[in-house]
Design a protein around this nucleic acid. Structure first.
Lengths: 161, 161
DNA sequence: GATATAGTCGATCAAAACGGTCGGGTATTT
DNA sequence: AAATACCCGACCGTTTTGATCGACTATATC
């Protein structure tokens, strides 16, 4: 579990997305402008988020990104894990046996700490963050995910992945 | 609040120190060998730990480091904060007012998340970690801090791994 | 079908952080 | 005086961060 600005960018972007997806797919260009994150950097982050099934994309005009799940099913830990990817692993981890086993005790201990923190971040969902963000104008049912496209015919809804 | 291997190194080293300080000052060379951390890197870390009053140093032969406080008064958050220093700060932080105040809402929200995590890490003390590490051989009173120097001379007691 | 939109992908890059080395200090003990 | 061990600053290679650019693909609309 690593915590850097990268994860924060991703969380910020996901909140922005969650706040607007009820109007249809949200473009990265929009998020980039509103949140002051470079478009190309967002593309990289959302590539990872998409591969982790946290968001779904809709290509072409009127396209953009939607959440792939209800926002109460997406935790901060999910987001951070998606973008920070493979990650630390206590440098000796389960791999080598260090020197004495004294060292591995220290490592395991750190792993425990990691786990507890992860557990905490897993308990914080996007829905909570959004609710905390906009306690006023959050209509009851909006945390349901919506079909990707709104236009009259189509609903081609790629969702590839 | 950033979480990297740097903080982990510092925590590991502090646990090592806490486990041995009852025998007198603990040398960085010893910690370096036992925990497989480079001596020079440890020096940098302990420079910061010392400036944050978490450890005290004893120079000269027989010298080394001691905890500057009882180990139940030192939290993991203290250690990480000491070595990870200035740290992120939501890129606009309390400084500028972003664009609209919408953005700052997002930022403040992240700050809250940060705070909660920090709060958690603040609740984990070195004493707990040590206890967890060595549930068997932890005599009752050893978590009291000791005066930086152990006596006028004598007790050379090099400890050395 | 042409065109505009918007995601996808890969290469590349500068700056920062990470982790470490080196070489010189200074304080203290023996 | 010599040995120990903290102290400090400069430097260095690698990885990560955050960003840019260029080319491509899918789709909607006219």
């Amino acid at each position: 579990m690593r915590l850097t600005t990268k994860g924060r960018f991703a969380v910020t972007a996901m909140i922005d997305l969650a706040l607007r997806q009820h109007e249809g797919p949200v473009t990265l260009a929009g998020i980039a402008e509103r949140e002051s994150i470079s478009l190309s950097y967002l593309e990289q982050l959302f590539g990872k988020l998409r591969r982790q099934q946290l968001v779904a994309s809709v290509r072409g005009p009127g396209g953009g990104y939607c959440l792939a799940k209800p926002m109460n099913a997406i935790s901060v830990a999910d987001i951070i894990r998606a973008v920070d990817e493979p990650l630390d692993a206590t440098n000796c981890g389960g791999k080598r046996n260090c020197h004495e086993d004294h060292l591995c005790m220290t490592h395991q201990l750190w792993t425990n700490l990691n786990a507890r923190m992860f557990e905490y971040l897993s308990s914080v969902t996007l829905a909570e963050l959004v609710k905390q963000q906009r306690p006023e104008d959050l209509p009851e049912g909006t945390d349901e995910q919506r079909p990707a496209r709104r236009s009259r015919r189509s609903i081609s809804l790629a969702v590839a992945a």
